[in-house]
Design a protein around this nucleic acid. Sequence first.
DNA 1: TCATATTAGTTGCATATGTAACCATAATTG
DNA 2: CAATTATGGTTACATATGCAACTAATATGA
Lengths: 154, 154
Amino acid sequence: MTKEASLKFHMSMGMLINSAHRAMTKRFVQNAMKSGLDISLDQWMVLGPIWQLESASQKELGEITLKDKTSITRLVDILEKKNLVVRVEDQIDHRIKRVILTNAGKQLFFDVLPIMEKTREEVRKDISDQDIETFKKVLSSIIVNLEDEKDKPS
Amino acid sequence: MTKEASLKFHMSMGMLINSAHRAMTKRFVQNAMKSGLDISLDQWMVLGPIWQLESASQKELGEITLKDKTSITRLVDILEKKNLVVRVEDQIDHRIKRVILTNAGKQLFFDVLPIMEKTREEVRKDISDQDIETFKKVLSSIIVNLEDEKDKPS
DNA sequence: TCATATTAGTTGCATATGTAACCATAATTG
DNA sequence: CAATTATGGTTACATATGCAACTAATATGA
């Protein structure tokens, strides 16, 4: 029995997702560290959209990353402490805080891109495109299956 | 474009796993809470093997759940604080601590089984067995792809 | 317009994890 | 057999998350 088969046989889906998730975040951080970059996968998940949108409210970041507003607050705290982003109060709606990249943040974004690509390749090694497609489809279904009632569009 | 398609289109694999993982742990805890049971998914992941093995060392628990020994220490701390398990020093090798269920732990184990099943059904809703198989296969491959060099059998 | 509700974001408390340093107890070997 | 190494487990520090309660600001509507 191969190691994969053994794992598949013994472990529940929940345990497998749990382990795969931890392994991926761990590897990303390790790869970044090897290149002298100090950033976590979750921090990157927020940094990317900020770059793409030029300026994003924390609410928008939460919607894009599917993260709780509480998590966004604290991730932005960390990014701000690292001088990668700054919060700017929206001029019209004073409840909103727009997050924008500093020059250091922009620099880091480009530095991390190849790390991301390297990690992606390590993760996908020997897995067919077809299986990856099915994999992503199932993940999307799970996310939709488990959506909070209260968050569902009425 | 359906919500699934939209998710699949926009989100990277890492983000999808991240979100699915969080959604599953969240739903499990919510389902348990609705039934008046106070246990997290990770606590359950440890409790199950203890039941199966009757008595397990923390090292064994780590191997089974693919969790770090540090995580096991702390999960067992919590389970012990909740009076669900007790640590017993191994009579032969005094470094080893065997973890066994209390009566309350055994009771909880059986109470949680239907919660587990309910959550499992909610997660898998409208996903074919075939796709689940592929899904688990891919997860196992990812875990193997990302295994630490130092942990690999020589 | 004034009271109420909603929205965006923050904070405190609890759980979960990784890393590294640490302790105590075996096991190894010079 | 004594010194060294390896093993099982714990602890401190940092990151990440959920929930609930909170603040400040905007929107709603009687």
